[in-house]
């Protein structure tokens, strides 16, 4: 039986894994891969300790530091398919290979998944002109017009990823740009970027591949069409909390509600940290901090429960 099983290998999970190992807790970390959403960044320039590091390199750094710790069992290339509470101080997890883990506590750091527009054509054209990973797929827009949907940092990064390739970039924003001023200033200087405000994307259309999209101008109310070969959807993320939604309380979007001092969820024995938890800011720094806080609190909890 484990003291703690950590689900997820992003910054929060890895930070907690290192602390669990150093506390010599009987622990395991189950993850598909390392880095979480941060792997999608071409360059991370706001993580304190590195002037600049690519998301892929950051994922490697996380994995290497975790692997330098012997006490924790690292189950990578795997994902958890079910979480059950089977006793007062006992949970049972099953992974995708059918392996069962019994554990006293769970730290849930499963992050989030790309939020979808959920409009006609989005699913049909996924990979056929509808993309979510701009750093991966921006180069396929060489000399072609493309649109980015969204107004946050990931949307602005998508525009920047497209700059060297696309012939024209439409940034389709529903209610104003919310991303960092440094990004905003950079893209406003580019003549091939056209920012369309107050626009609700309604439909993506094409033949075998995307040919364009329709949006509604929310001030004038009229529907307009743009001819584009690619639509990069960057409207944020949805918390990946489905596995535990029947065990813990979440907010309306699915973020797991946690105590801000301890990261403990509404269910004794389950903690959450990083983007899946209801912290205000989805950033690497806070995710690491939350992972550490959660693990230290789990340690205190185990010490006191084991005495009972």
């Amino acid at each position: 039986m484990y003291d703690v099983v950590i689900i997820g290998g992003g910054p929060a999970g890895v930070a907690a894994g290192i602390y669990a190992s150093r506390k010599k807790l009987k622990s395991a970390l189950i993850t598909k891969d390392f880095g979480g959403q941060s792997v999608n960044s071409a360059s991370i320039d706001n993580f304190i300790g590195y002037k600049s590091i690519s998301g892929a390199d950051f994922a490697k750094v996380l994995e290497e530091q975790l692997r330098a710790n012997d006490e924790i069992e690292i189950k990578d290339g795997k994902f958890v398919v079910s979480v059950k509470k089977i006793g007062d101080y006992l949970f049972e997890l099953t992974d995708n290979d059918g392996i069962v883990y019994q554990t006293k506590t769970i730290l849930y750091t499963a992050g989030s998944v790309y939020r979808k527009l959920e409009i006609p054509g989005e699913k049909e054209y996924e990979g056929k002109g509808v993309f979510y990973c701009s750093i991966c797929d921006a180069p396929l827009m060489k000399n072609k017009p493309a649109a980015v949907i969204g107004g946050g940092n990931s949307a602005l990064e998508a525009v920047i990823d497209l700059l060297p390739y696309a012939s024209k970039i439409y940034l389709i924003v529903r209610s104003g740009i919310k991303g960092d001023a440094v990004y905003k200033e950079k893209i406003e200087k580019e003549s091939k970027v056209e920012i369309i405000n107050n626009a609700n994307t309604k439909e993506i259309f094409g033949d075998a591949f995307v040919k364009g999209l329709k949006y509604q101008d929310s001030t004038a109310g009229e529907e307009k069409t743009l001819d584009v070969s690619g639509v990069f959807v960057s409207i944020g993320w949805t918390p990946n909390s489905g596995l535990v939604k029947d065990l813990v309380k979440t907010d309306i979007k699915g973020h797991i509600l946690v105590d801000s001092k301890t990261q403990q969820s509404s269910m004794p024995g389950i903690w959450a940290a990083g983007d899946v938890a209801d912290g205000l800011y989805a950033q690497i720094g806070p995710a690491i901090g939350e992972g550490i806080v959660a693990l230290l609190n789990i340690y205190d909890y185990i010490i006191s429960e084991d005495k009972k």
Partner: peptide, 14 residues
């Protein structure tokens, strides 16, 4: 693959 695609790099590393 493409030059900066992290999942391409992860696949090649694997």
């Amino acid at each position: 693959s493409t030059t900066h695609c992290p999942y391409c790099k992860m696949a090649k590393d694997y």
